[in-house]
């Protein structure tokens, strides 16, 4: 295993994030603060408790997920897309590194960034609302797994994208709606029956539900089932990446 190469890619990608600290780290904090002011403060004050938790506290896990999912996907997608776009990808392809080492470097860096953002948002949330975490270890683990799995998904999108439009397409048209409709701001049980059934096809529901369980000890969906669905999604991503590796899809002619 070429660990130096993984480390080089990882550091290279992290350096990019630190060159654009404002965009990478501060912007999500400001956005989240606005959500707390609007949903937690203005609207939340008129909503009764949800599942025994104040509405402002209830949305904390969902908000973290909203940002972490989007950031994981966009960070990883941009990370591999940028060298493809400017042409410096040749260096990765001519180096003595395997595709898996490449994935670990890129996905590791993207996941680290979104994990940090998740923690920063959690810290920001405590400034606005009371946050208590029932299962801290599980919370950290779930956050980490989410970051990695969605960074894998983002990596696939970055390789698939031929231009900036395609790069933006998936996060904007798929991830954001899925997260909004995935119970970030409400409990699935608050929906009419038909919509509850529809919701079960949304993979994000399982993530938000499991993550909310780690905070409040209660979940919309059975925890084991949620974990199984997350595992399934990770397996699908890994299978696609494996196929890309074998065929050199959009990397090697």
């Amino acid at each position: 295993m070429n660990t130096y190469a993984i480390w080089a890619i990882y550091r290279h990608e992290m350096a990019r994030a630190f060159r654009t600290t404002l965009q990478s780290l501060i912007a999500p904090v400001i956005t989240t603060s606005l959500y707390f002011v609007v949903f937690g403060g203005a609207i939340g004050s008129r909503i009764a408790e949800v599942e025994g938790v104040s509405y402002a506290s209830f949305i904390v896990p969902g908000l973290i997920m909203l940002t972490v999912l989007t950031q994981s996907v966009t960070n990883a997608a941009f990370g591999i897309f940028f060298p493809k776009f400017i042409g410096s990808i040749y260096e990765y392809l001519t180096a003595p590194i395997s595709f898996y080492e490449l994935v670990i470097g890129f996905v590791g860096a993207a996941a680290t960034k979104s994990f940090l953002i998740g923690l920063i948002i959690l810290a920001t949330a405590t400034l606005f609302v009371d946050v208590s975490v029932a299962h801290p270890a599980a919370m950290v683990l779930l956050l980490l797994v989410t970051c990695i799995v969605f960074a894998l998904f983002g990596f696939i999108i970055g390789i698939w994208s031929k231009n900036f439009e395609q790069l933006q397409l998936v996060p904007l048209l798929i991830i954001t709606p899925l997260v909004f409709l995935g119970g970030s701001f409400y409990s699935v049980s608050m929906l009419p029956d038909t919509w509850q059934t529809v919701t079960l096809f949304n993979p994000v529901v399982y993530l938000v539900s499991a993550f909310r369980w780690s905070f409040f000890g209660a979940a919309d969906v059975n925890l084991a089932f949620s974990l199984a669905m997350i595992g399934l999604f990770a397996a699908v991503c890994l299978a696609i990446i494996g196929w890309m590796f074998r065929t050199g899809y959009r990397l090697r002619a």
Partner: peptide
């Protein structure tokens, strides 16, 4: 084809790293 914002020495060191050195 070079990363425009990277510093010269860092970019060259990065290349060496990719080759496992």
């Amino acid at each position: 084809v070079l990363e425009p914002f990277e510093k010269v020495a860092n970019d060259v060191a990065f290349s060496r790293g990719l080759y496992g050195k």
